[in-house]
Amino acid sequence: MSQEAPIGVFDSGYGGLTVLKELVQRLPQYDYLYLGDNARAPYGTRSFDTVYHYTLDAVKWFFEQGCQLVILACNTASAKALRTIQQNDLPLLAPDRRVLGVIRPTTEIIGKYSETREIGILATRGTVASDSYPIEIAKFYPDILTYQEACPMWVPIIENNEMDNAGTHHFIKKNLHNLFQKGDNIDVILLACTHYPLMLKQIREYVPVQVKLLTQGEIVAESLEDYLQRHPEIDEKCSKSGLVQFFTTDAAEDFDEKGSAFFGAPVKSKHVSM
Score class of each variant (00 low, 15 high):
E64P: 00
E64H: 12
Q65S: 03
G66M: 02
G66Q: 02
G66W: 04
C67A: 14
Q68C: 11
L69C: 04
L69H: 05
V70W: 03
I71Y: 10
I71T: 05
L72G: 05
L72R: 11
A73G: 04
N75Y: 13
S78M: 05
A79L: 08
K80H: 09
K80F: 06
A81Q: 05
T84R: 15
I85M: 04
Q86R: 14
Q86L: 06
N88V: 10
N88L: 12
N88S: 14
N88K: 15
N88D: 11
D89I: 12
P91K: 12
L92H: 15
P95R: 10
D96L: 11
R97Q: 09
R98A: 10
R98N: 01
R98P: 00
V99L: 05
V99S: 02
L100C: 06
R104G: 00
P105A: 02
P105H: 10
E108H: 07
I110N: 09
G111N: 12
Y113F: 14
S114L: 03
S114T: 15
S114P: 08
T116R: 13
R117G: 00
I119V: 13
G120Y: 08
G120D: 10
L122T: 08
A123Y: 12
G126C: 07
T127E: 08
V128A: 02
A129I: 04
S130D: 01
S132D: 02
P134Y: 12
A138C: 09
A138T: 13
K139S: 00
K139W: 00
K139Q: 06
F140D: 03
F140W: 10
Y141L: 01
Y141S: 08
P142A: 01
P142V: 09
P142Q: 05
L145G: 07
Y147L: 09
Y147H: 15
Q148I: 02
Q148K: 07
Q148F: 01
Q148N: 07
Q148T: 14
A150F: 13
P152V: 05
P152C: 04
M153Y: 11
M153V: 11
M153K: 14
W154I: 14
W154G: 01
P156R: 12
P156T: 12
P156N: 09
I157E: 00
E159L: 03
N160C: 02
N160Q: 13
N160M: 04
N161V: 08
N161Y: 04
N161Q: 09
N161S: 05
E162Q: 13
E162N: 09
M163G: 00
M163E: 13
N165F: 07
N165I: 13
A166P: 06
A166N: 08
T168I: 08
T168Y: 09
H170S: 02
H170G: 00
F171R: 00
K173F: 04
K173H: 10
L176T: 13
H177T: 15
N178Q: 14
Q181E: 13
Q181R: 15
K182R: 15
K182E: 12
K182D: 10
K182S: 11
D184V: 01
D184S: 14
V188P: 14
L190G: 03
L191N: 08
A192R: 03
A192C: 08
H195S: 07
P197H: 09
M199T: 05
P208M: 08
